[in-house]
Structure formats: C-alpha cells, structure tokens
Design a binder for these strands. Structure first.
Length: 360
DNA sequence: CGTATTTGACCGTC
DNA sequence: GACGGTCAAATACG
C-alpha cells in the first residue's frame, strides 16, 4: 500500500534526520571540548541532547512489536554490561584493550585490577556558608562513606565514598574527598568511575537523600534518614539543587565549615569519551540539578528486602561480583555508548530485582 | 530496629 | 616495607 511506502519513507527520513542531528550534536560536543573548556551546564545540555537523539533512534530502530522491549534493553544495557567505549581518561584503556586483556584479569574480579581502568575526574570545590549545612549538599548522587585514611603529607584525612546504589544497581562510582592543605575551604573531589545508577535526573530512581552532611562533614553526625523519609525530603532537596559552577567561582570565601556542594558528578573526562562511539546514552550524566521532580520510583523495597544489614550487603557485594561479572561478560550490548565505571562489572538491574530470592 | 559511619585490619602495588 | 584503598565489625543515630 501507499501508506506502507510512505511510512517506510518517512521512517527512513526520520532516522536520517535524527542521525544527522546527533552527529551535529557530537560535532558540537567535540568542538566545544577541543576549543574551550565547557562548563558543566553545557556538558549537561549536550549530554541530554545526545541522549534524546539516542533514545529516539533506538526507539525507531527497534521497529515492530518488540520495539519497546528493544528500546528498553538498549537503554539499560549500556549501563549494565555493554562493551566498553573509548573511555579516555587518565589511565583508561580503550575498548580494544578491554577486550584483549582486561577481561581476563577481570575474571578474578580484583577490585584493584578493575580500578586500574576507572576513569577519574578531579574537581576542586570551594565551600562557603551560603551553601553550607543548610544548603543542598551533594552532587545529585547519594554516596556512602566506606573509609577514611590519613594521607602522607596531607593535613587532612581523605574520605572514600561509593555510590549508595552500588548493590542494587551495580553502580561502581566512587569518589574521594580530600581537604586542601592550603585552603581548608577547598576540597578536592576525585570521582572514579561513572554512575550507572539511575538515581538522578532522567532517572527513575530517587536520590533518597540530600545527604547534606555526608560530604565534608568534620563531625560524624551525618546519618542518613530512613529511606522513606529520604524520599519525603526529596522535593525540597531538589528544589534547592542547582548546578554548582557557582561554587567554583572563587568568590565564595566564607570560612565556615563544613559545607556541602552541588554539582553533577559524572562527566566524561574529555571529548574522547563518546564522540568516537556510535552511541552515548547515559542517563546518569545529568544531575538532579536539571532534572524534573516527577518520575521517581523507589528501589528501596528491593534494597531493604535483601540488605538486611551491612554485613549482608557487603557479603552480597563480594559474592555476587563473580556471578555478575560472568553474566556481564557474556552479555555484551550492541549499544555501549557510555563510560563505564571502569570495572566492567555492570549488570542488568532486572537481574538483581528479580533475584531477591537469590539473596533472601 | 534499620541504616550509615567509624576505624582498625587487611590487601595490592610500588 | 610504606602507602593508598577497601573491607567489615563495631558503633552511632533516628
């Protein structure tokens, strides 16, 4: 029928237009990164543009009755087990390297070995009273402190955080917070890996808590609210969120400490990150600062159901790592357009979600 | 009671 | 052996 032909033509044209749009966005991305140092806001916008193109293309290409499922799989897979892209941060190898060698190493799942391939990004953040304890504190992600260490030659200890959703969403992002020796108001935040969780923005998962005191707290009062309450405070939290390039302006010189800060925590290290890739969808790249306040659901039920206590949580982490890694290594996604946390230990959240019995 | 933090121990790397 | 990073039992908190 004519309608069929017309549809086919329109379909192809649509894909073509979307593809071109995405290419232009990538070029803009490249241009921006190669000529200037884009602000995080600019980065966010580009990420979203690319993400939107990617979504649209994926949906279109996932033609037929399985389109929705395919689209979903395509969006989920990159976060969970797709092939690594050209992560080009510090010591991060490109995908070829992963395929050739690191996957072998990965079988042993040594955290240290995995960490070798993590991308890192360091930011210096100046804190001030204005966005101190009363202000929005975090970067849109919820972190759980897992260690603190005195560093040789450093005046202040270094704190180690990992994503709260490490378990439930296999999000292996971590960060280190080091207070500056010279200026106690300045914190050096080193992000390692990338969030694969969906706790922010496009996200379907809630950032359960402002986590306001978690980051730079000097006194250990930073206890999390119960998850339900965290969700209740989400709206007010989000209302206060903003991209914190303000914090980097240098005009915030109040001495009051500690102070939280707000900025997106997951940016690719440089333009190599996904410009060279065929796709680059990453929902986690957008901070809550630019997100809406709507579409959230809570992973908390699952989380609480099998994370009865920290011991279980941690045992689960280590035990399941082997299983998951095997799962991930044999389940490469056709769409791998995003930066991974560096250790290819990405798993389908559905795997976990459906596996409560596994853990119970 | 559930969850997060603290902190000494442990491990891998250099 | 020193150091940095992580683990995990103990502890704190709401």
């Amino acid at each position: 029928m004519d309608s069929g032909l017309s549809l086919s033509w329109e379909y192809k044209t649509l894909i073509n237009e979307l593809t071109q749009g995405m290419e232009k966005a990538k070029q803009l991305h490249f241009h921006l990164c190669s000529t200037t140092s884009p602000s995080e806001t600019q980065y966010l916008l580009l990420q979203r543009i690319l993400s939107s193109y990617q979504k649209a293309l994926s949906i279109l290409k996932g033609n037929g009755s399985t389109s929705a499922r395919q689209a979903q799989a395509q969006f989920v897979a990159p976060m969970l087990g797709g092939p690594e892209l050209s992560v080009s941060a510090d010591e991060s190898p490109r995908i070829e390297d992963f395929n050739k060698s690191s996957m072998r190493d990965h079988q042993e799942c040594s955290p240290v070995k995995k960490r070798k391939f993590q991308t890192t990004r360091t930011e210096q953040v100046r804190v001030n009273s204005e966005n101190g304890l009363d202000g929005p504190s975090d970067d849109g992600y919820t972190w759980r402190k897992y260690g603190q260490k005195d560093i040789l030659g450093a005046k202040y200890p270094r704190s180690y955080y990992r994503c709260t959703y490490r378990l439930v969403q296999s999000c292996w992002a971590t960060k280190q917070v080091q207070r500056s020796d010279e200026d106690p108001n300045v914190f050096e935040i080193t992000y390692k890996g990338t969030h694969t969780c969906t706790q922010s923005t496009n996200a379907v998962l809630p950032p359960p808590s402002p986590d306001q005191k978690q980051e730079f707290q000097q006194s250990p009062q930073n206890h999390q609210q119960p998850q339900q309450k965290q969700y209740e405070t989400l709206l007010s939290f989000k209302a206060n969120l903003r991209v914190s390039t303000d914090n980097l302006d240098g005009d915030n010189n109040n001495n009051e400490m500690p102070a939280p800060f707000t900025f997106p925590s997951t940016y690719p290290e440089n333009q190599d990150f996904h410009l060279g890739s065929s796709s680059s969808y990453c929902p986690s790249f957008v901070s809550t600062a630019t997100s809406g306040t709507d579409n959230y659901f809570s992973p908390v039920n699952n989380y609480q159901s099998f994370v009865a206590n920290q011991s279980n949580y941690q045992h689960f982490e280590s035990d399941i790592a082997e299983i998951i890694s095997a799962h991930a290594s044999t389940n490469n996604s056709p769409i791998g357009g995003m930066e991974f946390p560096g250790d290819e230990l990405n798993l389908d959240p559905n795997f976990l979600y459906n596996a409560s019995g596994f853990y119970a």
